[in-house]
Each structure stands twice: as C-alpha cells, then as structure tokens.
C-alpha cells in the first residue's frame, strides 16, 4: 500500500471529508511524526508501536571503490518497535 492508496482508503471510509482534506491530513500526520523524530522526540501510538532514535557511534569506514579509510561520524537513526496489537495481528496468518 502506497501513500496515495492509503489516502484513497481513508477517503472511502470518511465520505464526509473532501478528498483534498484527507490528502492534507495524511501529509500533516506524516509531517508531525517526521518533525518529532527530527527534533529528537519519540512517537508512541498504543496498539501500533513506537518510534525512537537509536545512536550509532562514530566508526572507521572504507570507500568501497578506492579502499581509502574514511571516518564515519556518529549519528542517530529512526527505529520502530511494533506494538502488541500490530505484532499479534501480523503474526496471525
């Protein structure tokens, strides 16, 4: 399912909202979630899961083409932990 398919499904089940509003609402939710993570905050949605940042310490990497050693600085990467309901439903097939 892509973002546009998600928008279509939501439009179908929310006929009182304009299609345009549904599209804006989906974009707004994703923007809120992205900016929370970019600002270093967690996201917690019961029954769905939580998003947090995991720290990656600095390391020495290598340019695969030239073999030259390069320093890779430390960073934070987004991490998702599925919630109980999602875990159980996905596994019940």
């Amino acid at each position: 399912m892509t973002k546009s398919e998600l928008i279509e499904k939501l439009s179908a089940s929310q006929p009182q909202l304009d299609d345009r509003d549904v599209e804006l609402a989906v974009k707004e939710l994703l923007e809120q979630m992205s900016s929370a993570l970019a600002g270093g905050d967690r996201i917690e949605v019961r029954g769905f899961g939580s998003f947090s940042l995991h720290y990656r310490p600095p390391r020495m990497g290598r340019n695969p083409k030239t073999g030259a050693a390069v320093e890779v600085p430390d960073k934070h990467v987004p991490h998702f932990k599925p919630g109980k309901e999602l875990r159980e439903r996905v596994n019940n097939l």
Binding site: L6, K9, S13, L93
Partner: peptide, 12 residues
C-alpha cells in the same frame, strides 16, 4: 485512529 488502523490492516 483510522490512519493507523489502515496501516495495521494492510500489514495484517
């Protein structure tokens, strides 16, 4: 609620 439910339903 529906936003997260549609994602859960697709994955399920």
């Amino acid at each position: 609620e529906l936003f997260f439910e549609k994602i859960r339903a697709s994955l399920s």
